[in-house]
Simulated scan of single mutants.
Amino acid sequence: MAPEYAMEGIFSVKSDIFSFGVLMLEIVTGRKNNSFYHVDEPLNLVGYAWDLWNKNAALELIDPMLSDSSIQQEVLRCIQVGLLCVEDCAVDRPTMSDVISMLIDDNIALPMPKKPAFVSRIGVAEENSNKSKLGKYSVNGLSISAMDAR
C-alpha cells in the first residue's frame, strides 16, 4: 500500500505505481513483500531490496530460478525500476508510461532510486527500552483506563 494512502488516505495514479513496484520486486525475488519477519532483517521486501541495492549486492535478491547469468542485467534493471516505483514521495515515482519505456528500451538511462517508503524498523533493544520507560502505558504514551459501573 502506498505511503500516502496508508498515512493520509490520499489515493492517486502514483499509488498504483507503488503497488506495481512491490509486485516487480516480488516477481524478481520469488518472495512476498511480507515474508520478512527476522529481527535482523528489514521490515519487508522493499527494505531488504533497498539495503542490498545500497550495498551493491542487488544480485542476491534474484530468485534462484532466474539466476541464469545471461539475464542478470535485465533483472537488475527490473530491480532498479521496482525501487524507483516504491520511492517514498509520490512525486518522485515514475508514471506507468515511463515504467514501460524503462523496461522496453535498454538505452534509457535510469535515475538512481531514492529511499523507499516503509524501510525502517525500531530495533529490538530500542523497543524494549521504550517499553520499560512507558511502564503500563501504551506505545503512544496514553494511559489505559478501566471503567467500572457505579
Rank of each mutant, 00 (worst) to 15 (best):
A2I: 11
A2G: 09
E4C: 09
Y5G: 03
Y5H: 06
A6F: 11
M7S: 12
M7V: 13
M7D: 11
E8K: 13
G9P: 07
G9A: 13
I10Y: 14
I10C: 15
S12Q: 13
K14E: 07
S15I: 13
I17A: 04
G21V: 09
G21M: 11
L23C: 05
M24F: 09
M24H: 04
L25R: 02
I27K: 03
T29I: 09
G30V: 03
N34H: 09
S35K: 10
F36M: 10
H38D: 15
L43F: 08
A49W: 04
W50Y: 05
W50I: 07
D51N: 12
L52I: 09
N54E: 05
A57I: 06
A58H: 07
A58G: 02
L61C: 05
L61D: 03
I62N: 00
D63R: 05
P64K: 02
M65F: 14
S67I: 04
D68P: 00
D68K: 03
S70K: 14
I71K: 15
Q72K: 11
Q73H: 06
V75G: 00
V75F: 02
L76G: 02
R77N: 00
C78S: 09
V81Y: 04
L83V: 07
L84G: 02
L84E: 03
D88V: 03
R93N: 01
M96H: 06
M96F: 09
M96A: 06
M96T: 04
V99P: 02
I100Y: 04
S101T: 14
S101I: 11
M102Q: 05
L103G: 01
I104F: 04
I104A: 11
D105Q: 07
D105Y: 13
I108Y: 01
A109H: 10
P111S: 05
K114R: 15
K115D: 02
K115H: 07
A117I: 06
F118C: 11
F118V: 04
S120V: 08
R121D: 07
V124M: 13
V124A: 14
A125H: 13
